[in-house]
Protein backbone atom coordinates (compact mmCIF):
# COMPACT_ATOMS: atom_id res chain seq x y z
CA UNK A 1 0.00 0.00 0.00
CA UNK A 2 1.33 3.40 -0.93
CA UNK A 3 0.13 6.64 0.52
CA UNK A 4 0.78 9.29 -2.09
CA UNK A 5 1.83 12.69 -0.84
CA UNK A 6 2.66 15.97 -2.53
CA UNK A 7 4.57 18.98 -1.23
CA UNK A 8 2.56 21.83 0.21
CA UNK A 9 3.22 25.26 -1.30
CA UNK A 10 6.30 26.60 0.48
CA UNK A 11 4.34 29.73 1.49
CA UNK A 12 1.97 27.59 3.53
CA UNK A 13 4.89 25.85 5.25
CA UNK A 14 6.74 29.10 5.99
CA UNK A 15 3.42 30.48 7.28
CA UNK A 16 3.29 27.70 9.87
CA UNK A 17 6.91 28.30 10.85
CA UNK A 18 6.43 32.04 11.13
CA UNK A 19 6.51 32.14 14.94
CA UNK A 20 9.20 29.44 15.34
CA UNK A 21 12.89 30.23 15.49
CA UNK A 22 14.05 26.62 15.80
CA UNK A 23 12.67 23.70 13.82
CA UNK A 24 13.14 19.92 13.96
CA UNK A 25 12.39 18.07 10.69
CA UNK A 26 11.10 14.50 10.37
CA UNK A 27 10.83 12.54 7.12
CA UNK A 28 9.58 9.06 6.39
CA UNK A 29 11.54 6.22 4.86
CA UNK A 30 8.59 4.53 3.25
CA UNK A 31 5.89 6.21 1.13
CA UNK A 32 7.18 9.80 1.38
CA UNK A 33 10.69 8.72 0.38
CA UNK A 34 9.25 6.84 -2.58
CA UNK A 35 7.19 9.87 -3.60
CA UNK A 36 10.23 12.15 -3.30
CA UNK A 37 8.38 14.32 -0.82
CA UNK A 38 9.90 13.33 2.53
CA UNK A 39 13.17 11.47 1.91
CA UNK A 40 16.70 12.57 2.66
CA UNK A 41 17.21 14.93 -0.25
CA UNK A 42 13.86 16.67 0.31
CA UNK A 43 14.65 17.08 4.00
CA UNK A 44 18.03 18.62 3.22
CA UNK A 45 16.43 20.92 0.68
CA UNK A 46 13.86 22.01 3.26
CA UNK A 47 16.60 22.46 5.87
CA UNK A 48 18.46 24.79 3.55
CA UNK A 49 15.31 26.85 2.89
CA UNK A 50 14.53 27.16 6.59
CA UNK A 51 18.09 28.10 7.46
CA UNK A 52 18.10 30.52 4.56
CA UNK A 53 15.23 32.37 6.21
CA UNK A 54 17.33 32.90 9.33
CA UNK A 55 15.90 30.07 11.42
CA UNK A 56 17.79 27.21 13.04
CA UNK A 57 17.22 23.54 12.33
CA UNK A 58 18.00 21.72 15.58
CA UNK A 59 18.13 18.34 13.87
CA UNK A 60 16.38 15.97 11.49
CA UNK A 61 15.70 12.27 11.07
CA UNK A 62 14.00 9.83 8.76
CA UNK A 63 11.72 7.46 10.64
CA UNK A 64 11.66 4.16 8.68
CA UNK A 65 7.84 4.10 8.69
CA UNK A 66 6.42 7.19 10.37
CA UNK A 67 2.89 5.80 10.73
CA UNK A 68 4.26 2.86 12.71
CA UNK A 69 4.13 2.31 16.47
CA UNK A 70 7.97 2.41 16.54
CA UNK A 71 7.82 6.15 15.85
CA UNK A 72 7.49 6.54 19.61
CA UNK A 73 11.01 5.15 20.15
CA UNK A 74 12.52 7.21 17.35
CA UNK A 75 11.13 10.34 19.00
CA UNK A 76 12.57 9.27 22.36
CA UNK A 77 16.02 8.83 20.82
CA UNK A 78 15.94 12.33 19.36
CA UNK A 79 14.20 13.88 22.39
CA UNK A 80 17.06 16.26 23.12
CA UNK A 81 17.16 17.93 19.69
CA UNK A 82 13.37 17.96 19.44
CA UNK A 83 13.14 19.60 22.85
CA UNK A 84 15.40 22.38 21.70
CA UNK A 85 13.08 23.18 18.77
CA UNK A 86 9.93 25.34 18.85
CA UNK A 87 8.09 23.03 16.48
CA UNK A 88 8.34 19.84 14.46
CA UNK A 89 7.94 19.90 10.69
CA UNK A 90 6.70 16.53 9.48
CA UNK A 91 7.52 15.62 5.89
CA UNK A 92 5.33 12.54 6.15
CA UNK A 93 1.79 11.57 5.24
CA UNK A 94 -1.07 12.67 7.51
CA UNK A 95 -0.92 9.39 9.41
CA UNK A 96 2.74 10.09 10.13
CA UNK A 97 1.94 13.66 11.27
CA UNK A 98 -0.71 12.39 13.66
CA UNK A 99 1.44 9.52 14.94
CA UNK A 100 4.27 11.94 15.67
CA UNK A 101 1.92 14.38 17.42
CA UNK A 102 0.47 11.54 19.47
CA UNK A 103 3.83 10.31 20.72
CA UNK A 104 5.60 13.62 21.10
CA UNK A 105 6.39 14.12 24.76
CA UNK A 106 6.85 17.93 24.61
CA UNK A 107 3.84 20.08 24.07
CA UNK A 108 4.76 21.72 20.78
CA UNK A 109 3.16 22.02 17.38
CA UNK A 110 3.69 19.43 14.67
CA UNK A 111 3.22 20.99 11.23
CA UNK A 112 2.66 19.07 7.99
CA UNK A 113 4.91 19.89 5.05
CA UNK A 114 2.96 17.59 2.74
CA UNK A 115 -0.57 17.07 1.49
CA UNK A 116 -1.77 13.49 1.75
CA UNK A 117 -3.39 12.73 -1.56
CA UNK A 118 -4.56 9.16 -2.02
CA UNK A 119 -3.77 5.49 -2.00
CA UNK A 120 -2.06 5.16 -5.30
CA UNK A 121 -1.11 2.74 -7.99
CA UNK A 122 2.31 3.30 -9.56
CA UNK A 123 1.55 3.35 -13.30
CA UNK A 124 5.15 3.99 -14.22
CA UNK A 125 8.17 4.85 -12.05
CA UNK A 126 7.31 7.95 -10.04
CA UNK A 127 3.84 8.23 -11.60
CA UNK A 128 0.90 7.56 -9.33
CA UNK A 129 -2.83 7.35 -9.97
CA UNK A 130 -5.69 7.31 -7.53
CA UNK A 131 -7.60 4.08 -7.89
CA UNK A 132 -9.43 3.57 -4.58
CA UNK A 133 -11.70 5.83 -2.53
CA UNK A 134 -11.55 3.57 0.53
CA UNK A 135 -15.35 3.71 0.55
CA UNK A 136 -15.80 0.73 2.82
CA UNK A 137 -18.09 -1.26 0.52
CA UNK A 138 -16.09 -2.34 -2.51
CA UNK A 139 -17.91 -2.48 -5.86
CA UNK A 140 -14.99 -3.82 -7.92
CA UNK A 141 -16.65 -7.21 -8.28
CA UNK A 142 -19.36 -5.54 -10.35
CA UNK A 143 -17.23 -3.05 -12.28
CA UNK A 144 -14.56 -5.15 -13.98
CA UNK A 145 -12.05 -4.34 -11.20
CA UNK A 146 -12.02 -0.62 -12.08
CA UNK A 147 -13.29 1.69 -9.33
CA UNK A 148 -15.90 4.16 -10.65
CA UNK A 149 -16.19 5.89 -7.27
CA UNK A 150 -12.82 7.48 -7.63
CA UNK A 151 -11.95 7.06 -11.30
CA UNK A 152 -15.24 8.56 -12.49
CA UNK A 153 -15.21 12.29 -11.66
CA UNK A 154 -18.85 12.11 -10.60
CA UNK A 155 -18.57 8.77 -8.75
CA UNK A 156 -21.35 7.44 -10.96
CA UNK A 157 -22.43 3.89 -10.22
CA UNK A 158 -24.55 3.11 -13.26
CA UNK A 159 -22.54 3.82 -16.35
CA UNK A 160 -21.01 6.79 -18.17
CA UNK A 161 -22.66 10.22 -18.09
CA UNK A 162 -23.25 12.29 -21.20
CA UNK A 163 -19.83 13.87 -20.89
CA UNK A 164 -17.86 10.78 -21.93
CA UNK A 165 -16.26 11.45 -25.28
CA UNK A 166 -13.62 9.53 -27.20
CA UNK A 167 -12.72 7.61 -24.04
CA UNK A 168 -12.09 10.82 -22.09
CA UNK A 169 -13.89 12.37 -19.14
CA UNK A 170 -15.54 15.77 -19.64
CA UNK A 171 -13.39 17.12 -16.83
CA UNK A 172 -10.07 16.80 -18.66
CA UNK A 173 -8.45 15.34 -21.75
CA UNK A 174 -5.98 13.72 -19.36
CA UNK A 175 -8.63 11.78 -17.47
CA UNK A 176 -9.82 8.55 -19.04
CA UNK A 177 -13.55 7.89 -18.65
CA UNK A 178 -13.71 5.14 -16.01
CA UNK A 179 -16.94 3.80 -17.45
CA UNK A 180 -15.43 3.55 -20.92
CA UNK A 181 -12.63 1.47 -19.36
CA UNK A 182 -15.20 -0.68 -17.54
CA UNK A 183 -17.22 -1.04 -20.74
CA UNK A 184 -14.17 -2.07 -22.74
CA UNK A 185 -13.05 -4.66 -20.20
CA UNK A 186 -16.53 -6.14 -19.80
CA UNK A 187 -16.89 -6.16 -23.58
CA UNK A 188 -13.62 -8.12 -23.94
CA UNK A 189 -14.91 -10.64 -21.42
CA UNK A 190 -18.28 -10.90 -23.16
CA UNK A 191 -20.01 -9.71 -20.01
CA UNK A 192 -21.61 -6.44 -21.10
CA UNK A 193 -24.94 -7.63 -19.68
CA UNK A 194 -23.51 -6.73 -16.27
CA UNK A 195 -23.80 -3.06 -17.21
CA UNK A 196 -27.57 -3.43 -17.62
CA UNK A 197 -28.07 -4.07 -13.91
CA UNK A 198 -28.92 -1.13 -11.68
CA UNK A 199 -26.39 -0.69 -8.91
CA UNK A 200 -28.12 -0.29 -5.52
CA UNK A 201 -27.90 2.87 -3.43
CA UNK A 202 -24.48 3.20 -1.88
CA UNK A 203 -24.08 2.79 1.87
CA UNK A 204 -21.92 5.79 2.73
CA UNK A 205 -22.23 5.09 6.47
CA UNK A 206 -19.32 2.67 6.18
CA UNK A 207 -17.33 5.41 4.47
CA UNK A 208 -16.16 8.78 5.75
CA UNK A 209 -19.80 9.88 6.17
CA UNK A 210 -20.25 7.45 9.07
CA UNK A 211 -17.71 9.11 11.34
CA UNK A 212 -14.19 7.83 12.19
CA UNK A 213 -13.83 4.20 11.20
CA UNK A 214 -12.15 1.54 13.32
CA UNK A 215 -11.26 -2.04 12.59
CA UNK A 216 -10.23 -4.57 15.22
CA UNK A 217 -8.12 -6.81 13.02
CA UNK A 218 -7.20 -9.09 15.94
CA UNK A 219 -10.84 -9.76 16.73
CA UNK A 220 -11.64 -10.33 13.04
CA UNK A 221 -8.84 -12.89 12.78
CA UNK A 222 -10.21 -14.73 15.81
CA UNK A 223 -13.73 -14.90 14.42
CA UNK A 224 -12.73 -16.01 10.94
CA UNK A 225 -10.08 -18.57 11.91
Amino acid sequence: MKTITSRKPIEEVTGYLDKCRKVYIIGCGTCATMCHTGGKSEILEMKEKIEGSGKKVTGWMIIPTACDELTKYALEEEAGRIKEADCVLAMTCAVGVQTIALHLKDSKPVYPALNTMFIGMEDSPGHFSEVCLQCGSCVLGRTAAICPLVRCSKSLLNGPCGGSSGGKCEVSEDVPCAWQLIYDRLSEMGRLDEMEKIEPFKDWSVSVAGGPRKIDAEAECTTTS
Binding site: G159, S164, Q180, Y183, M195
Partner: peptide
Protein backbone atom coordinates in the same frame (compact mmCIF):
# COMPACT_ATOMS: atom_id res chain seq x y z
CA UNK B 1 -23.71 11.57 -28.97
CA UNK B 2 -21.63 10.55 -25.99
CA UNK B 3 -19.44 7.47 -25.88
CA UNK B 4 -19.43 4.53 -25.91
CA UNK B 5 -22.14 4.93 -28.56
CA UNK B 6 -23.13 1.25 -28.47
CA UNK B 7 -23.83 1.54 -24.75
CA UNK B 8 -26.10 4.58 -25.03
CA UNK B 9 -29.23 2.55 -25.75
CA UNK B 10 -28.48 0.22 -22.83
CA UNK B 11 -28.13 3.23 -20.58
CA UNK B 12 -31.51 4.49 -21.79
CA UNK B 13 -32.97 1.04 -21.10
CA UNK B 14 -31.59 1.28 -17.58
Amino acid sequence: FADPFEYRVSRLAK
